[in-house]
């Protein structure tokens, strides 16, 4: 069994102005596994996942202390190359956000930014990425069509293909299926299951059944604290903390 750690977070505190959104978070994200983050709205799970690729840098008045160690370095250090970091740790958002370009150009965008110019190389990476995102068969005959003409579920898989094209190590997913119908959702979940063989995945979800279905480990956040982090089966079958028990059984508040 592979017990390697991909990202190690230690004593992470985060403030938005005077409001402390994350309190002393310490967690080891295992490599090549799916880690689900659950908790009620405002518990800090989305803020936490954004910290893993420095997306909170974009927010005014934010203060972060602690460590997020990835590949032996604290990515919170000011000399971190954020562009390079986000190539290795990519993010998929709640609403699919394809560029208003063709399907091909969406996937080729990242490699082009990173200097891939040859058409043959781009063709290869687009095909490989779309196949890995389980979208190739549906779009291979219309790669030059606008990505905006795809369905919501297809757009989300396109966004995943766009991430995979730059060969990341870690995929962060913030509610990736919450805007999708059950069939599109199950395709995304199947895809997550396939992708974990090659990538480390962290997924934020409001849908507890989804966390139960797709993840190996689950973290429960509440009021900015990491209340409990355990194997998914333990967290849903026999949580240790009363707050986790109340949340997963739906008896909160």
């Amino acid at each position: 069994m592979n017990n390697a750690i991909e990202i190690s977070v230690k004593d992470l505190d985060l403030w938005f102005g005077k409001f402390q959104a994350l309190k002393k978070i310490s967690i080891d994200i295992p490599k090549n596994k799916v880690t689900a983050l659950i908790g009620p709205s405002g518990c800090g799970k989305s803020t936490f996942i954004k910290t893993l690729d420095r997306m909170n840098d974009l927010v005014d008045n934010v203060k972060i202390t602690g460590e997020v160690v990835y590949q032996g370095r604290n990515i919170l250090d000011s000399d971190t190359d954020v562009v390079e970091l986000r190539k290795q740790i990519g993010m998929v958002f709640q609403k699919p956000n394809p560029f208003p370009k063709s399907i091909f150009d969406n996937v080729a965008y990242g490699p082009r930014v990173h200097g891939v110019r040859k058409k043959a190389n781009l063709n290869e990476v687009v095909e490989r990425s779309l196949k890995a995102a389980a979208l190739w068969e549906e779009v291979k005959d219309r790669l030059n069509e606008s990505a905006l003409r795809l369905s919501g579920g297809q757009q989300q898989r396109l966004c995943i293909a766009r991430l995979l094209a730059v060969e990341p190590e870690v995929l962060l997913m913030d509610e990736p299926a919450s805007a999708l119908d059950p069939i599109a959702t199950s395709k995304i979940e199947d895809l997550i299951y396939e992708l974990k063989k090659d990538y480390t995945i962290v997924i934020v979800t409001h849908n507890m059944q989804q966390a139960a279905r797709v993840s190996s480990n689950t973290a429960f956040f509440y009021l900015g604290e990491l209340v409990e982090f355990a194997s998914t089966i333990d967290l849903f079958e026999r949580p240790r903390d009363k707050r986790t028990e109340d949340y997963v059984t739906g008896k909160f508040g």
């Binding site: 507890m208 059944q209 139960a212 849903f236 079958e237 026999r238 949580p239 986790t244 028990e245 997963v248 059984t249 739906g250």
Partner: peptide, 9 residues
Amino acid sequence: EQPMAKDLR
């Protein structure tokens, strides 16, 4: 009801 934790048990 998708029971969890003690409810499931």
